[in-house]
Structures are given as C-alpha cells and as structure tokens.
Write a protein that binds this DNA or RNA. Structure first.
Lengths: 220, 220
DNA sequence: ATCCTTCCGTTGTTGCAACAACATACGCGT
DNA sequence: ACGCGTATGTTGTTGCAACAACGGAAGGAT
C-alpha cells in the first residue's frame, strides 16, 4: 500500500507516513480493486466500513422508483465515501456506489476507528478528529448551498452567495472560485439567465464585477 | 444540572444518568442562561465548545451584506449547535446564534471530547460515537433534501422525494411525515402548485394517494 | 494571421410555477 | 344541527427564469 499517498489524504492528515502501517492494521484495512462500472456498495446494504479512494474515482448513484437513475455525487482520489452510513450502525444505503473507472479502494472499519484499541494506539485520537472535521466540513458546505438555493428568485440566490463570500473573505471585494457555469450549477440556475441577472445587478448599482472578481456596493 | 434530561439527549444517548456528572466535568461543562433575543454566539467568532440546549430554543441567523437577515435554522431542546464549527479549529462562524426565548445552554469543550482524558473515562468513546452519528445524520438529511431540490421541475422533485420514501420504507405504499405545507417547504415549492401537481400525477397514473398515504404505481 | 475552442454576455420566446383567490372537506367544540 | 378553524384541492393570471440561439472577447495551437 502507498503509505505516502495515504498520509496526505484529509482522513490521515497529521499522521506521519511511518505511523500509517501500524494504524492501518488497527483499522482492519482491506484493499480492493474494481473495474469500471462495477458496483462497490449496493443500495439497501448496510456498512460498517468507510471507503477511501486510492486511485480512480467513484460515483454516488441514486435509483428512482420508476427505473431512471441520477448521479448525485462524485468521490475522487483521496476522498472518503460511505462514512455517513458507517457512522450510523444498521443504516441502509439509499444509493449505489459505482466505480467510474478502474478504481482502488481502501476499506477501514469504523468501529475500530471509534474505539481505542488495546495497544492504546495514539493516532486514533487524530483520525477521529479528522473524521469529525471532514463530516463537519461537509455539513457546512451542504448547509451553505442549501441556504443559497432556498431563495426562490435568481437575484436573491446570487445576493445570498455573494454575501457569504464577502463575509468569508472579510472584505466586500473578493474573487470567487467558480466560473459562470459552475456557479450556475452550484446555485441550481441557468447560466445565461444568471449572467443576465448579474449585469442587471450591476446596472442597479448593487455589485461591480469583472470576470471572477466581485465588489459589493454597500447602501452607504 | 438536570442529569436525567441530559442523559436522554441524542448526544448522551446510551450513557446512564449516574455517569453523566463525571463525564460533564471531563468535558468542562459550563451552563449559561440567556434572555430572549440575546446573542449567544456572534458571526465571525470561532468556538471550541458545542452548545446543548437545555431549555428554550435558539435560532441560527444569517446576516446579509445589505443589512437584511434570515433565520436559517432552529435548534430545540436537547439538540446541539455550533458543533460543525467546534469540530474545525479556527473556523469562524458565518452566522449568529440567537436565543429565541429564555434559554439555558450547556457548553461542552470539543477538544476534551475528542481526546481521551487522563482518567481514561470510558464514556468518551460513547459520546464520540454519538457526536459522529449526529453529524452523519445531519449530513444524510441535508444530502437528501439537496438531491430533491436539485431537480428543476416540480414533478421531478416530488418523484425524487417519493422514490426515496418508498425505498426507505421498503414498500411502494407508505405514509409521509409531512402535511402539504411542510412538504412544500421541504421541497422549496409552492403549496397549491404542489397540490395541483400531485393530482395531475394521480390522473397520469403515476401515484395514488389519500391524505398522507401514498402508493407508487410501477410501470409493470 | 488564421482557425478553433471556450467562456461570457445579450436577446427573444415560451413554459412552468408562484401567487392570489376561492372551493371543498374534515374535525372539533358547543 | 351550527359555526369555526385548518388542511387540502382547484382555477386563472402573471411574472420570472429556463431555453435556444447568437455574437463577441480572449486565449491557444498551428
């Protein structure tokens, strides 16, 4: 196993390469390879292990009752999946996890992660912190996006997003990490309609922008 | 402190009342009272403690750049708040936490929760599991809602939600936990438009429903 | 310089869903 | 029975945003 790679993933952040192998055995690590389109975890099953993508990537696929399906998420190299289900014993997955391509996955036992092992392995604490941090960060990301998409009008969604960005950057002038299409997808709106609305907002004096650099104009 | 109440919260689930007081001192528990509309945590600050609502309730309030604000969430008795920020050291809150009413909050130190204390207190493991489970459950709830509201058309949102409900109940016939207004809010659509769409879907033979009991009609 | 591609803005059309207003049904207390 | 309140369904209007189509600007490759 590639301990160098593993030690640089968010889950193992702060744990040195030399400590990895010991920790992996604590966690009952198992490595598996999947071919493209192979189903890694099927909806309806329940898991006690999380998956860490070592190479390749996987899709989170939701199957509807009427037969159609929808790719809901994508998990790339170094990211984890199924962690939310593994954290809730007995919880059944409502989606499939499918290999997008040739993919290697490292499975780690969640129970072992959460109970300090007999050897008193010092890095349990660290990995638990990382696990919780990952979960918390996902929560914040989802909450933010939920908040922005909650508004009905296109302008309100933009104002909500730009407000948050200004707060996060601590300045009314900032650069956003999206191009127009990505921003439109993020806010769940049409790109051209959004471009249109942005220029209207600029005409109305609410904002000024050039490419990805925005300035919010206060009422004062 | 009301150890009986505390032992019945999700965070302390599985920990007996007699064990609470010892654990609370491990966690550096501090109790504080707030008057209605008092700000408990202000946006921009960073926290190392989570809040457990002992009585009353709090609102999560987002302030926009242009002065307006919006109540984004509500945390009731027995629930926790600020846990996502406490799990990410140095992360600044993007929202205020405000007491809705006369409210008592128990603050618990996240760092103490995540590092096994010198006394080797056995219940750390349990509370960490609970914490992670709470976070995971919130993640799943947010993900579900995000998925449903991602669809553009009203019908697709309904189909997405109903599909998930059927899967979760393991049956094409099930009862939903929302009334029409609540479901409309959850899916971020207009109630009457949704009622209209539901009856169209019934006419089209996709579903059958009476009050909150729905049946999905497969194509077979 | 010339293609070509990608990104962004603009315009016009159209469809869908929000909105308002009302109708109906049901429960509940008296 | 009656009145009242709440929840839900129906209808018609209207506004907003999706969609399609296009034009221009910027960058790369040859």
């Amino acid at each position: 196993m590639n301990t160098f790679f593993i030690s640089n993933t968010p889950l193992f952040h702060g744990i040195s390469e030399s400590e990895i192998s010991e920790l992996l055995s604590c966690l009952g690590a198992k490595e598996r390879k999947y071919k493209k389109d192979e189903i890694i975890i099927r909806a309806g099953s329940s898991v006690s292990e999380i998956g860490l993508v070592e190479s390749g990537s996987v899709n989170i696929v939701v199957n509807f009752y009427w037969g159609n399906s929808h790719i809901f998420g994508h998990v790339g190299k170094g990211q984890v999946f199924a962690e939310n289900y593994a954290a809730i014993p007995g919880k059944e997955l409502l989606c499939d996890v499918v290999a997008c391509e040739e993919t290697e996955v490292l499975f780690l036992n969640m129970r072992n992660m959460l109970t300090t092992c007999q050897r008193g392995c010092a890095f349990h604490t660290r990995i638990i912190q990382n696990m919780l941090r990952i979960s918390a960060q996902k929560n914040l990301n989802l909450s933010s996006r939920m908040m922005h998409t909650a508004s009905k009008s296109l302008r309100e969604r933009l104002l909500s997003y730009l407000s948050e960005q200004a707060l996060e950057h601590g300045s009314s002038r900032f650069t956003i990490p999206f191009d127009r299409q990505q921003l439109a997808d993020y806010l769940a709106v049409d790109r051209s309609a959004m471009s249109n609305e942005l220029s209207k907002m600029q005409k109305d004096g609410l904002i000024t922008y050039h490419k990805n650099e925005f300035t919010l104009n206060g009422s004062t």
